[in-house]
Design a protein around this nucleic acid. Structure first.
Length: 551
RNA sequence: GCGCCCGUAGCUCAGUUGGAUAGAGCGGCAGACUUCGAAUCUGUAGGUCGGGUGUUCGAUUCACCCCGGGCGCGCCA
């Protein structure tokens, strides 16, 4: 829609320049916008304002020159005016909207620009270590990552979803020891519960299943068995939770493989060779100042074990080596510093890290009846993602997790998410779809066929402002998805869908579709609703939320 | 103390690479169903965009300085 007007403006500018009246040759991108104020027309251009400085002329005079050269061969512009400091306002003709809607209905991509065609993207998310069930915080990560992957696919990237997990560090040792302690407890042997061991009931479940299958045959020093049992049981649990959210991964990448391949040794060697690491106090340090960090960071502890950031550097080096055009890391706010360290180290090693884009999300708080639900990781009092899904379901969970900019703290209202009413935004949007489906069913009982392929001429009966407003929103869909994918901001799709649903409900309440005496109008309105329906299905699909036919 | 993020209506939050009189939902108030699903819609009240300087035709948006909140600043991950 905007592009069409931009093209007309570019033409006018060209003619004005050719006539020697102006000097600018390029229309600045994004200079056509939808005005906030409806009275300002359907579209407004800031072109004259934008080039005023370079032209050294008053914006309004430039606007006049441009309008004088504006040619509209298809008659899609109903009127223009120069307003304010130099805006050019356009009133669009019905024909414009008819062509726009027909174009959308003929376009299987719904106007989404394939910005990622021929490019490969990787989204790494969740990446929780298998030491316990996923929490609500992991839920935001999981849904965010999966939706980013869907968005990138929508703009034609070839996308890989990857889960990185740490199964080599101290945490896994503690996990194994925690299971052993519970095992010892159950079989009646002396118990040595590890310091800061895992307290959750799921540890006991793992121990119990070992007792069920092996009795008391596992010796205390068989750490491997306890650890492996814990890892596989908890991982199965995590995957089951992900299944409930329709989240899958292409690659599960484990930290162990970086040791086996020698990648970690290689990073250490390279850093040392470049003089970016040094030994002191019995440990190996990354020289902070040399890579742009405020202080030195430990790479290898004096115990000889790598600190977490060393395998992380190796992992990201591995990712870069896989030649993705875009690498997205979905991270909680508490990991931002680590991410910067990794990126700094990689740059020090000579890697171009510009393809890596972190998406940082702030923490989630749960509220119920306006009261905050207390969560404490330390005392294992956190709410698990499974519990949240038990209570509100996948659709509401996904929709709510995505309904805020990831940079903002997310207040998750449990009661609102459960409500089956107008207040609940996910029901509001889903209801818009169900309503259209219901209307189709009604049409069928009246023997009214849904229109097939339509042309702009078939849509001539659309003439109401509310109809054109709906078309305008529909043709904006592709741009919304494009920006959401480019900026890695799924919440834009959520807000868009709420607005589209509102426009649909408004239209539906004011105008009868099937009852109209004009057959042409019935057909045109059904075509309009079909476009709304397709966009709703597409948008909800991007969010991983169902578009139900009945509710 | 240093770094990153946030501060917009009573509440929860949008604001599209700087645009016109700053928006939505909820809550408040007042209305609309013998008709395609009222799980909806209509109207209305509500703001020093945390504060202040600067950049310019123009700032919620950009820069700097304060104030307030979150998260980091570990040989934990």
């Amino acid at each position: 829609m905007k592009k069409r007007i931009e093209a007309l403006l570019a033409n006018a500018l060209e003619r004005a320049t050719a006539a020697g009246e102006l000097h600018t040759t390029v229309v600045p991108p994004g200079c056509v916008e939808i005005p906030k104020e409806r009275a300002h027309g359907d579209l407004a251009a800031t072109l004259a304002l934008g080039i005023a400085r370079a032209e050294r002329k008053p914006p309004r005079a430039i606007a006049e020159t441009i309008l004088r050269h504006l040619d509209d061969p298809h008659g899609v512009i109903a009127g223009t005016e120069i307003a304010g400091p130099g805006f050019i306002n356009f009133k669009l003709a019905p024909r414009f909207w008819h062509e726009a809607l027909a174009g959308l209905l003929a376009d299987p991509t719904l106007g989404i620009d394939p910005a990622g065609r021929g490019k490969r993207a990787q989204v790494e998310f969740v990446s929780a270590n298998p030491t316990g069930p996923l929490t609500v915080g992991h839920g935001r990560n999981a849904v965010l990552g999966d939706t980013l992957a869907r968005l990138l696919e929508a703009v034609s990237y070839d996308v890989e979803r990857e889960y990185y997990f740490n199964n080599a560090g101290r945490q896994m040792k503690v996990l194994g020891a925690s299971v052993r302690a519970r095992y010892q407890e159950i079989v009646g042997r002396p118990v040595d519960f590890p310091e800061d061991g895992y307290q959750g009931a799921y540890i006991r479940d793992v121990a119990q299943s070992l007792v069920d299958s092996r009795g008391d045959a596992i010796p205390d020093d068989d750490e491997k068995t306890f650890r492996a049992a814990a890892e596989s049981a908890i991982f199965a649990d995590i995957r089951a939770t992900q299944d409930r959210l329709a989240i899958t991964f292409d690659v599960y990448f484990n930290e162990d493989s970086l040791y086996e391949s020698g990648a970690i040794e290689a990073v250490l060697r390279d850093l040392e060779a470049k003089g970016l690491s040094e030994k002191k106090e019995g440990a190996v340090w990354l020289c902070g100042e040399k890579v742009g960090l405020d202080k030195d960071r430990v790479l290898v502890k004096s115990s000889g074990e790598p600190a977490y950031r060393l395998p992380d550097i190796a992992y990201h080096q591995n990712k870069l080596g896989r030649r993705f055009d875009l690498i997205v890391d979905v991270l909680g706010a508490d990991h931002i510093a680590e991410h910067q360290e990794v990126a700094a180290a990689l740059r020090g090693l000579g890697f171009d890290t510009s393809s890596i884009r972190p998406v940082i999300y702030q923490f989630v708080t749960l509220t119920r009846h306006g009261e905050q639900v207390k969560m404490s990781t330390r005392r294992a009092e956190y709410v698990t993602l499974d519990e949240l899904l038990d209570e509100v379901g996948s659709d509401a969970a996904r929709f709510f997790f995505l309904s805020r900019k990831s940079d903002s703290h997310l207040e998750f209202d449990l009661e609102l998410a459960k409500k089956r009413s107008t207040d609940n935004p996910v029901y509001y949007v889903q209801y818009a779809h169900a309503r259209i489906m219901s209307l189709y069913a009604q049409a069928a009982t009246q023997g009214i066929a849904l229109p097939g392929a339509v042309t702009a001429d078939d849509l001539g009966a659309l003439e109401l402002a509310e109809e054109f407003e709906l078309v305008q929103q529909l043709v904006s869909y592709g741009e919304v998805v494009g920006v959401a994918a480019r900026e890695l901001e799924p919440h834009r799709v959520v807000f868009y869908l709420q607005e589209l649903a509102a426009a649909l409900h408004r239209f539906y309440n004011h105008h009868r579709v099937l009852g109209d005496e004009s057959r042409e109008r019935v057909a045109a309105r059904l075509a309009l609703l079909e476009a709304v329906r397709r966009v709703l299905v597409s948008g909800l699909g991007l969010l991983g939320v169902a578009a139900p036919e009945r509710m």
